[in-house]
């Protein structure tokens, strides 16, 4: 088992990075790795509720983020600086997340065996 951190740094619209990152996060967890997910910059837009991505012509993968606890992905960090920049409160997000400083995220990454960025 390895400690795998998966970073989301892209908006849910404009490219498929977050969708394919989420696929990898869930798959890693189902292979019994210790998975953390971290949302940075526009990546945290994935966690806004009431989105309808199917209206933009893509699959609604965003709802699948809510499945992460079922896969025992319990470490969900969001960058507090990104929250402030985007004017989003931690309580507005669709998942239970921990607001983390850049220093804490940096520390978390040093404790990970592998880091994958989407």
């Amino acid at each position: 088992m390895k400690k795998i951190s998966i970073l989301f740094r892209h908006s849910p619209y404009g490219n498929a990075a977050s969708r394919e990152g989420l696929d990898l996060a869930l798959l890693s967890a189902s292979f019994e790795q210790e998975v953390s997910v971290i949302f940075i910059g526009e990546g945290l837009l994935n966690l806004l509720p009431n989105q309808q991505p199917q209206l933009s012509g893509v699959k609604d993968y965003i709802a699948t983020f809510k499945a992460m606890p079922l896969y025992d992905i319990e470490s969900v960090l969001v960058c507090e600086q990104s929250l402030a920049q985007l004017g989003i409160g931690i309580n507005e997000l669709s998942l239970d997340c921990e607001s983390a400083s850049a220093a804490l995220i940096s520390h978390h990454l040093t404790l990970s065996d592998e880091v994958l960025v989407f």
Binding site: M1, K2, I4, D23, L24, L27, S28, F31, Q33, D113, E114
Partner: peptide, 9 residues
């Protein structure tokens, strides 16, 4: 993707 994970291990 499982092949990626087993490869990482």
């Amino acid at each position: 993707l499982g092949e990626l994970i087993t490869g990482i291990e």
